[in-house]
Design a binder for these strands. Structure first.
Lengths: 329, 329
DNA sequence: ATTATTTGTGTAAACGGTTACATATATGAA
DNA sequence: TTCATATATGTAACCGTTTACACAAATAAT
């Protein structure tokens, strides 16, 4: 491995000078600058980030903690983050927490030990105070926090929107799927929908669930049609659950959207490929990731934050699991 | 930040001793061992990975280079890798290459500069020789290589399987979607299917495409039914494309699987939620990730590899976009 | 009792950068 | 000319670990 000393010797200067041209700091004569640059090229030298990081006490790494990259909502977030931080010269250390405290701790330690300059977490921090001792800035994503900068979609509004749209389109016996209690965004949506439903003249039934995973979704779907067969509108906790519901509805030969309307949440990429294409409340996942990363960049560069909390708007994406509103006018 | 010296002083020993208990190397008396351990606990000391890495010249980081985490096939791979390496105490630096040489280079440099102990790449290495100068082991995933250890599914066999199954189930005018030429696994599948089709008595039409992305898939789908409206069987280059095809078929009110059979490739998680549920050739993505990581672990630990190339079997997942074989006898 | 070996611990030199400080020369102002 | 300042470069300390080496005490072997 070629070190800064090799370059210095070859170029006939001191390591300090090489360091100066590398970082464009201090004074260095143009002649020597090009000489050093040439030597760097010639020796194919690339500075050791670890050594740099040891002295400066910070790396160019950013920690990213997600519940589970396998859940189709998160790759979008991750990609938005990656694109943004990459353009600033930072790289990501990725961790899946599975919403388990232990794994979360492991990664917090990893991030600290590796001198990350900041982190973004989309995990329901089971212990917010874990983050207090950290020496680097933290941005919460897909979770709100009043202590820390955070980026999240307006879940409550999204929940309201879903309920309003489904009512507006004529559902009278609505099933509201309540996501896991420990997943905060899911609860906010739930509360939003609940607030609308409880003031409407529609009957409604709340189904309690404890997971948002593929494998469980089908189970909930079956359960709904058993327990509440006359339901004519389902507000799912996310698109995965909605898709499972759709699937089950087809199996039971229910006609969507004529006899049954379904609304999802998230607008994951594959939702528009379901049949019928899923109507859903869209969270701008990629954008959320980008914004969270942007916020973190500012924290890192110690620029003042205009606003610590960024709440992104949700939108109703009208596709084919809901009826056209004109039809019902 | 509490350092090893703080611990040493507090425990009344030298830094060497602390290091010894940390790494369980050399001799250290039981009394002092527990004393040091207690001090570590008391001061909440956690060793600085960067300093460690500088001296030992290796970190506990592993580089992971993917084409695009947003493509639903890759999160599965990533998760398999993460689970495996995590259990060995390693962490991941994640990069998206978008199959661009420049980004690939950036990450190769990042990995080197950060002293990763190894890397896994699922990118079509545009320049295999880039990997020659690397100081750490590399495992290719979802790509075969005879130089480097690699883990991949049997794409050729998968392609054959798809063609065989669709023919067996009675399609006579088959459309074969040829994925992007630069995506090797897609080409292998294509070749596999081609080899079967060309020896069969079915008519077939090959559609050239240059992307596997969501956004383009719908375009190809429309194109197929325009150019070859009488087709009664479509072999898609992956599940995303297959889903788009399905969607378009529904729009055109084609009956699947009665008038049109569709087979995908990959078996991404959401494929079983499409309607009709997608028949597909399954690649065991999670398992592939795990195996690749396992191979890398062995390389890192300098254990001998029993086999450098791991080819995982593909399987036909019979769902509802293909007819039952009995029906056709 | 003497020597060899095992056990236990400390000192200081790495690892490869960055930067405070020292020094020297060039340039400009008085 | 003389002093102040800007420019240019080098020396060495430091970041927080690991480990080679030295040394001493305890234990085992003769």
């Amino acid at each position: 491995m070629v070190t800064i000393r090799d370059v210095a010797k070859e170029a006939g200067v001191s390591v300090a000078t090489v360091s100066r041209v590398l970082n464009s700091t201090g004074y260095v004569k143009e002649d020597t600058r090009v000489r050093v640059m040439n030597t760097i090229q010639k020796l194919n030298y690339s500075p050791n980030e670890v050594a740099r990081s040891l002295y400066t006490r910070e790396s160019r790494l950013i920690g990213l903690l997600l519940p589970d990259i396998t859940n189709p909502f998160f790759p979008q977030l991750a990609r938005g983050i990656e694109d943004e931080v990459h353009s600033h010269g930072f790289r990501l250390i990725l961790g899946n927490s599975d919403e388990q405290l232990e794994k979360e701790l492991t990664y917090l330690q990893t991030f600290t030990q590796n001198h990350v300059v900041g982190m973004i977490t989309a995990t329901t921090s089971l212990a917010q105070k874990l983050y207090e001792g950290l020496t680097f800035p933290v941005v919460f994503l897909d979770r709100s926090s009043d202590q820390y900068p955070s980026v999240y979609a307006d879940g409550f509004e999204g929940g309201k929107l879903a309920a309003e749209e489904i009512i507006k389109r004529g559902s009278k016996r609505i099933t509201l799927i309540k996501g896991p209690v420990n997943v905060k965004p899911a609860q906010e949506r739930f509360q939003g929908s609940l607030s609308v439903l409880s003031q409407s003249d529609a009957d409604f039934y709340v189904l309690n669930t404890n997971s948002l995973a593929f494998d469980d979704a089908q189970k909930w779907a079956k359960e709904i049609f058993q327990k509440y067969p006359e339901t004519d509108g389902i507000i799912a906790s996310n698109d995965i659950v909605a898709t499972a519901v759709l699937h089950e509805a087809f199996r039971l030969e229910k006609s969507v959207p004529d006899d049954l309307q379904v609304i999802g949440f998230d607008d994951i990429p594959q939702s528009r490929f379901s049949f019928p294409a899923l109507s859903t409340i869209r969270q701008p996942a990629y954008e959320m990731g980008k914004q969270a990363a942007g916020l973190l960049m500012k924290c890192i560069k110690k620029e003042p934050l205009i606003q610590k909390q960024v709440q992104l708007p949700v939108t109703f994406i009208e596709r084919n699991t809901t009826r056209k509103v004109e039809e019902h006018g």
